[in-house]
Amino acid sequence: MDTIIDAHHVTKTYNPKTIPVVAVNSVHMHLERGEFTALVGPSGSGKTTLLNLIGGLDKPDTGSIMIHGTDITRLSANQLIDFRLRNIGFVFQAFNLIPVLSARENVELIMQLQGLPKNEINQRVETLFHQIGLEDKLDTRPAQLSGGQQQRVAVARALASRPQVVLADEPTANLDSKSAANLLDIMAKLNQEENMTFIFSTHDQRVIERARRVITLVDGKIFSDTAVVDTSLPHGISPA
């Protein structure tokens, strides 16, 4: 087993001095490589906050978050930026792409920031656009892409840097059900083909059904953590 995320006793309180809101409350979480996990819960239950903490965009008040062996709560702001670049892939709810860059350039940008050589970048772009089925949209600007296509490019970008884990915060929230299903297909395929670990938050039942593990948050606490047993899949599932 290869542990990707190991979080202990993670708590995050907003406005501690005025009207404290405990957004994430003493959460423990353990994820192995290749998991395909949904983070569910009602609006305001702390999904975004938890994903931000795991992704190193925000710091918890207490607890530790080990990402593939590194405790990111101990990293400085500058170290965190570099850590995110090399270890975390992000897909946000909307407006993921830089409007002035073509689809390809949006994906290349991350690898350029990583300092990968040109030929490696080109190869990776080709593979990824093939995987997301947008080979013919390489040079299209985001504004000319549909919402679903934009999110697929965002997923390609998240994978471009070969991160340890891809964090997707309500990636389907702005999509119609057909595009949402398509996006989930692609994510599931990439999870298989690249053995990429995914955590995606959602409150869409059809999306939840696609996950192989479902973690439910209520008021910042883990309410349940269920494995969806499917013996046809080769990947291990580890109930908490």
Partner: peptide, 16 residues
């Protein structure tokens, strides 16, 4: 603002 925030989130460092 959003876009710059996203670039930093994705790992664009301060110098860049």
């Amino acid at each position: 603002t959003r876009e710059i925030g996203m670039l930093v989130a994705l790992g664009m460092n301060k110098l860049r």
